[in-house]
Structures are given as C-alpha cells and as structure tokens.
Write a protein that binds this DNA or RNA. Sequence first.
DNA 1: ACCTGAACACCGTTCAAGT
DNA 2: ACCTGAACACCGTTCAAGT
Lengths: 205, 205
Amino acid sequence: MQDTPNRPYHHGDLRRAIIETALEMLRAEANWQFTLREVARRAGVSHAAPYKHFPDKAALLAELAMIGFDRLREALMKAKPEASRSLLEEITPIARAYVAFGTDNPALYRLMFSAEEGRAVGMHLNERALAVFEVVLEMLGSGQAAGNIRKRPIRGQAAAVWSLIHGMTMLAIDGLLVPEKVGSAPLDAALSTLVEGLEIPQPNT
Amino acid sequence: MQDTPNRPYHHGDLRRAIIETALEMLRAEANWQFTLREVARRAGVSHAAPYKHFPDKAALLAELAMIGFDRLREALMKAKPEASRSLLEEITPIARAYVAFGTDNPALYRLMFSAEEGRAVGMHLNERALAVFEVVLEMLGSGQAAGNIRKRPIRGQAAAVWSLIHGMTMLAIDGLLVPEKVGSAPLDAALSTLVEGLEIPQPNT
DNA sequence: ACCTGAACACCGTTCAAGT
DNA sequence: ACCTGAACACCGTTCAAGT
C-alpha cells in the first residue's frame, strides 16, 4: 500500500510511514500484539530501519498514544453541541463520542492507557492525556456558570465524569459492559445517574 | 524461596508453585513484562515444565486473573460496613477498598482486565468479573429497599458505579488521577458527585 | 544522512528423551 | 505421570557495512 513499486533505497518519509502503518494495523485487529518487526515488514523496510527514527519501541508507542489522545480530543470537540438547554443534552453526545472512539479503536485506546514506558520517559504524553481532562473541565465550567450544575469543586466533578466514561469505555472494550450482561443501554443509564449527581435537582424529581 | 535445597526431579505441586511465583512477581514490580520463562526460572524448574500444567501462557494469565477477581471480591465484602445510615457511608469504604486493591496490585489489576485471550477461550473469567458487579448490585438493591436510593433501573445505577470506580482505579494506576494533577482527593470528590446522583435529594441541598 | 544484514540475547512452544 | 534439553520460529536491539 505505501511501498512504491520501484522504492528507492531511501524511503523519503519513513518516519511518517511507520506511524501510519502502525495506526492502520492497530485499527485492523483489536487484539494485536504490537510488533516493531511486523510494522517494518509492512512498511517495506528492514527491521532495523525504524531505529533511525525512534530510539526504541516504547518511543513509537508513546508517539502513537499521543496521536490517539489528540484524535480523541478532536472527536470530543466535534461532538460538542452548539447550544444545549440541559446538562444531559450537553454531556450525552460527548460521552457517546468518547465511548464510540474507544470501541471503534480498541487497540489504540488500550495503547493510550498502557504506555507505561512512554510516560516514564517524560514525554508529553501526560499533558496530551490531561488535555482530554480539560475538555471535560470546560464543559462543567460553562455548566456551572449557566446555573445547570451544582456548585461543587469542579475538578472533583470532572474526575467523576472522566472516571466514569473512561471506565465504561474500558469495560465495553473488554466485553464486560454489554447490554446482554448488564442490562440494556448501559451507557445511557449510567450517564443519567451521573447527570443526576451533577445537575441541580429539579422540582419534578 | 519455594525451591527446596534437595528438590527432587518431581516437584510435587508445581502447578500451585507456578501460580504463587507469578503472583509474587506481579506484586513485586508494577511494570513487569510477564514472562513464562522467568516464572519457571524463579520456580526452579525448566522453562518447559509449566506446559504440563497449563496449555499455554494465556491459560496461566486467565487463571491469575480469576484469582485476582476472587480476591477483589473478598476485599470488597470485607470492607462492607455492618450498618450504615447513609449511602455515602455505605459506598465510601467499598470504593476505597476497590481503588486500594488496584493501586496496591497494579500489575495484577491490569492483567485482570487485559486477558483478552483468557476471555476468548471461554473460561470462567467473565463470570468471575461479573461477580464483582454483583456486589455492587446487592449494595444498591439494599439501598433502594431502605429508601436511600432513587428508584431507577438498578443495573444502570450499578453500571455507573462500577464504571466510575473501575475508571478511577485505572487512571490512578496510570498516574493520571493523582492529587497534584487533578485536584486534591479525587476519589472522595468523584464519589460524592456519584452519590448525589444516586441518593434521594435531601432538603438541605 | 539513511538503510541493510548479520548477530546477540531473549521469548513462547514443541517434542523426543530422561526419571 | 512428571520433568528436562535441544530445537524452532519468533522478538527487540545493536552495529558494521552498504548507498
């Protein structure tokens, strides 16, 4: 696919090719044992070539994880509704987009949260992950300002929202939170429980 | 440790020894690349010996994961308070015990939720995992019966509780939900948000 | 400056042979 | 019935050598 018929000795942009090949393979198979050699093989280069562009396997994984976080953040921002009357209307599409990102890209999502090495190396992985947290934070901030949300420490509320959605995504990927096992539409049900804890109680409760 | 000085040719109870050695190693190092050969080495047997007791590496991982779920369930039941006046009083010690289990045994906890193979093999891993879900379910059931909890579909509420606590545990293990980064005492803050969504609104809100 | 091929130290898994 | 040792096909990583 990315190897030209008369591929020259020098690839041209092997770095990008490696990343794209890896992302493709992550998308294709959910339970794939990530292998540097296989990535190189499919990119059409020797297994030693990647080492000219990444210090080691962990560095590539960290890079992929960062891309994953960036994409997740974009997906969340795109899902953000223009205007919304209630918190549930605001939070539901974002939460849906989040879980959908995870279940559509299970291997990548897992990778994003298991790159221990990448995190230890001191790369910008943590910051990228916390950028997702910021999206949640902003949403809650505007909700509090609009008077839709209980006045509580906002970082605590954000921790609750992120934890719940991240946990649900993980359980969904693991096949543990599917309708047959846990009741129908677990996302919506869990979400409304969460929203009831965030929003200011209405008279008709 | 578990290899006697004059160990005979036949180990006696190698199956148990392998499991215990593996658990020990999981406890010792948080970011350990699980290696069948290293387990065998530390158990004092050849690297082929484990294959007489487990069909393959995935089977051993699945077994360890099941043990992990059993221990988690025990820890939760032990943490369950005798009597409790409010939902927060009931749920807080359980949630604390859950997160503590994860942060105390990060490698094992990760393993429990990443044994894709073990789940596919059709072992009883899923059932063991869902037994944890049952603990949450029971707690909410008694809470609803006592009139502490909003009358909502209970499986949805349980999905919210398990997702939030699982997500928080994972984020804590990943070092993403620590006080410095996310505000102080994220567990307590998130928990009170969740509890506000579960319990029937009090007049003094 | 970028890539290859051989080499090294590891894995998981199998299988004939040992006790 | 249970364990070992050699063997096979794989990895990640390094390094001299090629273009």
